[in-house]
Nucleic acid binder design. Structure first.
Lengths: 347, 347
DNA sequence: TGACGAAATTGGAACGTTCCAACTATTAAG
DNA sequence: CTTAATAGTTGGAACGTTCCAATTTCGTCA
């Protein structure tokens, strides 16, 4: 069944008008008379016509597709970001190509090339580690709007939307210090990323302003995952002078830190204060609820999409670097003023 | 810059061959001479040519795009499923359209329509709740291969890939019973889904074969989320005769149950046995590591993609309903043989 | 040397849409 | 009653590729 494709000329013939008129109807043009529009629409429904976007894309340049490439979909931060993007992109009548690079540069190169071939009218990219400005050059040369999210790439000449990592870290550490902590660790994350650098700098600055020295022992990198958090806290607890609190690179690490604490019979939030970063949805409902620097990934996805759409519609526009403010969501996991509760069972 | 698009005829002219030859080179046809192939490829690189898939799609029917629609990307089970799909689909030279429906039927209708317009050559769908066979009818009428994942829709006449929910539940409950539990609850999930029905039936059957009665009190539905798990276990703990173990609808619920348990100062795995369903990546690293029915979401995505690709390549093929086996991954969260450890601090 | 088959190459007609300029009806103004 | 303006409608030429049938080039064998 459905051997032959139904095309505009088929409905034109059936409706007794020209294909041009049908095309006008499809584009909801105000030029066509109300009654003919109704008739054409009726025939469209009747014959089960489906619009062929490949043909349309061929004729006109613009394409109603936007691409989104993320470095790790498995991380719920990025999954939420993607649904944020999808939300606004869909509402604008676009459709999203989503690709996952798993932090692999060659994979990223492939998917970007593939998206270009499909004529995406814009790209939202959370770049894989090690992405350079040169990787994006062909895109900007071709005049394709690009919005970088989460990780900025200096000198790429495209818009970016990042969160205020430095301010967030400062706020978190300040809070910890106010609650009496003197030995605060910075746990998790890969040291060679800009995000890590900014958060760690905020951590150091806040410590400094409180007159505390920052000790390299207390900065422990790891994979930015739950498993990484477990190993980081283990390492931290091997220190002679153990920390009593930690700012974690992200929420996944923070959850891992909580796990590791429990494995040592320490209750996060009571025996040790932990603060995360990102505020993924589970942060609110976890036990103890995670105190974290709220970045609102879904909202970030939405804003990135809006920014991209704006650039797409208004032709070419100046690249802008937006850093969105963050706020500290204070919940239970940082509840420990030092010594508030003396743990009976030691070790 | 890059005012004019570079097309096949441009490279044909520059390479001193015809556009047909260029097209042949692009398709890696064995028909063309090795030396001309090299020359053409050189020119392609030199001029920065990018292939126009819209034009190609227009000419030929097939499109190198597959669509994947999931009901909740925010749930890491589906995120992992999506990366599994992406993996094999990308390796096969396809690209994926991913859309999130948030369980909304009209959203689903829209995205499926949009994907058809883009000429996807196949669809992997994890249908929103309430999806009916009629919703998929236009797709099968148009001869577009569809693979349903996770949730099957009876009578839709398309292939499906589900996990053996019944057997998994049976294995889990059997394990609990062997460890001495008599009052086992079934927590979380919406009662009106086929997946819920299958898992609950397995739960009931296993109880029955052990000579235990199934009590409606112990079957407590909730949203299939972490928050839902918290409320479900709270409700369970209000019962006069409390359960000592629970099979949860999925891992998210199981994590919520653990949270709720801790909020009552009960340690999951010691004071109460909990088993999840799905085996998301965090299950392994959580503390306590979650005993769960392993479904391998990523592998499932891969198999779904392979199945779809097979159908796409081999023209039309009989719809097949595959139910993939599951295994019980025994970890710590079910560690409690009843009474094995007497909790000192009661309440 | 000529003929033949195989290997390469090629021009032109699609594919289904949009855009443009031109056209026809209809209405309003003089 | 003519003219001008306005509202709708229309045919045909693109867009960049693939496919087909036809053609050229080449090596081989009688």
């Amino acid at each position: 069944m459905a051997k032959e494709r139904v095309t505009v000329v088929d409905i034109a013939r059936a409706a007794g008008v020209s294909k041009s008129t049908v095309s006008l109807v499809l584009q909801a043009s105000p030029l066509v008379n109300e009654s003919t529009r109704a008739k054409v629409n009726a025939v469209i429904r009747e014959l089960g016509y489906v619009y062929n976007r490949s043909a349309a894309n061929l004729r006109q340049a613009r394409s109603k597709i936007i691409g989104i490439v993320v470095n790790d979909l498995t991380n719920s931060f990025f999954a939420e970001l993607a649904v944020g993007v999808d939300e606004v992109v869909q509402a604008a009548g676009f459709v999203q190509f989503l690709a996952n690079t798993s932090e692999k540069l060659d994979r990223q190169r492939e998917v970007i090339a593939s998206m270009r071939e499909h004529g995406v009218s814009g790209l939202i990219i959370s770049p894989a580690r090690g992405t350079e400005a040169a990787d994006l050059a062909p895109l900007v040369a071709a005049g394709i709007p690009v919005v970088l999210v989460v990780r900025d790439i200096p000198g790429a000449g495209v818009s970016s939307l990042t969160s205020d990592n430095h301010a967030g870290a400062v706020a978190a550490v300040r809070h910890l210090v106010e609650r009496g902590h003197r030995r605060v660790a910075f746990l998790g994350g890969f040291a060679d990323t800009a995000v890590f650098e900014a958060r760690m700098r905020g951590y150091g600055d806040a410590l400094g302003e409180a007159g505390l020295v920052v000790s390299d022992d207390l900065i422990i990198g790891s994979a930015p995952s739950r498993a990484g958090g477990v190993t980081a806290i283990e390492q931290a607890m091997m220190l002679r002078e153990r920390p009593t609190a930690a700012l974690c690179f992200n929420d996944a690490v923070a959850f891992g830190v909580c796990d590791g604490l429990r494995a040592r019979r320490l209750e996060p939030g009571e025996d040790f204060a932990v603060i995360g970063f990102d505020d993924v949805i589970e942060a609110k409902t976890a036990v103890p609820a995670l105190t974290t620097v709220s970045v609102d990934p879904q909202g970030m996805g939405e804003r990135a999409a809006e920014l991209l759409l704006k650039q797409i519609n208004s032709g070419r526009v100046e690249p802008e670097a937006i850093v969105s403010p963050v706020r500290l969501a204070i919940r239970q996991s940082c509840g420990a003023a030092v010594g508030r509760r003396v743990k009976e069972i030691s070790s």
